[in-house]
């Protein structure tokens, strides 16, 4: 594909503080196209804030956030960023509980998002086909006519991932997909994400180390708003600093 030097996402010197608390502190982060990247870090490390900054929910105090060649994300708002091809899955499953699974996907399909087009648009055969394709990917084909509110927790998570897929995004941001899932569901989610890597670039935030081990190629560790270290799961897990952060063994003064 494109040259390897071309990052799909880069954050440079990004800082953000809330009431004096530095949630993100001079963060540098780069990601290649097609990569599946896992971000871990203790509570309050700034993982969710980082996603907020990428998706336009929060504006950074300083720093550069670039998508692709030279699209500055800091000046755009949520829906504009989404239209560029960045999809975000929230920590708590966020689907339209009163709509059917089919409709949930339909509303997320690529296409015009203006008020008028939604009033006069009709569902085309190709759209229908695409929806069924997505439903198949997330394994909810036989639930198409169910109301999303009636799905189990795990199924809601998958549906939300399906909604992201329907937009055919370049970059997927997935916040703790395995939270609250059974082991079996977790494994299935892992498979799903891995099958998507390559076609899409994916950032996954996760706590569950078994899950991380299952999907991760490269892991980035966030601590106090900055990048602590990056590497494979094994590298990261044997890193002294990471152990210190997680287990609180303070051998040396920082």
């Amino acid at each position: 594909m494109t040259s390897h030097k071309q990052f799909i996402l880069s954050l440079e010197g990004v800082s953000k503080s809330f009431d004096g608390f530095k949630a993100i502190n001079d963060l540098n982060f780069y990601m290649d196209e097609g990569e599946l990247r896992v971000i871990i870090g203790p509570n309050g490390a700034g993982k969710s804030t980082m996603l907020d900054i990428i998706t336009g929910r929060t504006r950074p105090d300083k720093g550069k956030v670039e998508f692709g060649a030279n699209t500055d994300l800091t000046e755009l708002n949520e829906y504009e960023i989404n239209r560029l091809g960045i999809g975000r899955k929230f920590q708590t499953p966020s689907v339209y509980i009163d709509h059917t699974v089919f409709e949930n996907i339909l509303l997320s399909l690529q296409g015009s998002r203006s008020v008028w087009s939604t009033i006069f648009s009709r569902v085309t055969a190709s759209q229908r086909e695409r929806i069924h394709e997505v439903l198949k990917t997330i394994g909810l084909t036989d639930r198409a006519t169910w109301k999303a509110g009636a799905l189990s927790h795990g199924q809601k998570q998958w549906l939300e991932i399906g909604m992201l897929l329907a937009q055919n995004p370049k970059l997927l941001l997935v916040d703790e997909p395995a939270a609250g899932m059974t082991d079996e569901e977790t494994a299935k989610t892992g498979e799903l994400l891995m099958s998507l890597a390559g076609k899409h670039s994916i950032i996954v935030i996760e706590h569950d180390m078994v899950f991380v081990r299952q999907i991760a190629r490269t892991v980035s560790v966030l601590h106090q708003g900055s990048l602590l270290c990056e590497g494979t799961v094994d590298q990261v897990q044997s890193d002294e600093r990471v152990i210190e952060v997680y287990l609180g063994r303070k051998k040396k003064a920082q």
């Binding site: 949520e78 829906y79 999809g87 975000r88 929230f90 689907v95 339209y96 709509h99 509303l107």
Partner: peptide, 14 residues
């Protein structure tokens, strides 16, 4: 109705 039930999801769907 989607806005009623989950406005953020709609917003983050573009």
């Amino acid at each position: 109705r989607a806005i009623r039930d989950s406005e953020n999801r709609v917003l983050f769907s573009g």
